[in-house]
């Protein structure tokens, strides 16, 4: 029989794990965007060698498993003088990984804006930064929001992988619980449902934001 009573004693550690998961998630997303926004611009509009470098970064981090990237950072890092605790290593790893995807998305969003839009801004005397701020970014936001929400969801799910390098987030805490109680099915089932609910909540928030951002595309007021 399925028995959920084992959770009653464990709730403090579960709560701390949950809070840490959320912190890692937000930090990871922020880092990914902080990397993705400028690199996306460089990938779309940079000089050739810059583009090649950014492209290499994107290909490497999208082409290899996050777990292996974390191993390199956390276990191999010290051999070249980068010694990080599990938590910062995890957040940096997650940010670099998500950043590669964000770079690609921002670049695609920029390339999707019709050149005529920029030409029109120039014709009205906008400077480069004014064009960027008032014309390009608002339009791009609508295009990149759905894939970015997707990436945020992937980052949320990937926070679980940090448990493998001993970051005490939610999955780590639940695994600890299973080892204490020798009950496996109930904790992992509850954990699955928990992540699922969190993902669905994020997705529905994202959809609402997308609708708001895309309001100018509606044909009737």
């Amino acid at each position: 029989m399925i028995d959920f009573s084992i959770f009653t004693d464990a709730w403090p550690s579960l709560l701390s794990g949950f809070l840490l998961t959320v912190e890692i998630w937000l930090a990871g997303c922020a880092l990914a965007m902080a990397i993705g926004a400028p690199l996306g611009f460089l990938l779309a509009a940079g000089r050739r060698p810059t583009k090649a470098l950014v492209r290499a970064y994107v290909e490497f981090f999208r082409g290899t498993p996050l777990l292996v990237q974390l191993f390199v950072l956390y276990y191999a890092g010290p051999s070249i003088g980068i010694t990080l605790d599990a938590l910062p290593a995890g957040i940096i790893g997650l940010g670099l990984y998500g950043g590669a995807y964000c770079t690609e998305i921002v670049c695609a969003g920029l390339e999707a804006i019709p050149p005529g839009q920029i030409g029109a801004a120039r014709a009205f005397g906008y400077s480069r930064s004014q064009t960027l701020r008032h014309i390009v970014v608002p339009q791009m936001l609508v295009l990149v929001l759905p894939p970015l929400v997707n990436i945020a969801i992937f980052v949320l799910k990937d926070t679980a992988i940090l448990s493998i390098i001993t970051v005490p987030e939610l999955t780590f805490q639940v695994t600890g619980l299973t080892l204490d109680t020798f009950a496996f099915v109930e904790p992992y089932l509850a954990l699955s449902v928990g992540y699922w609910v969190l993902v669905e909540l994020t997705a529905s928030l994202g959809r609402r934001a997308e609708i708001r951002a895309a309001r100018y595309l509606e044909t009737s007021a």
């Binding site: 799910k157 990937d158 679980a160 699955s192 969190l198």
Partner: peptide, 9 residues
Amino acid sequence: GVPLLVLLL
């Protein structure tokens, strides 16, 4: 919606 790691476990 479920992280693959959790699903595998």
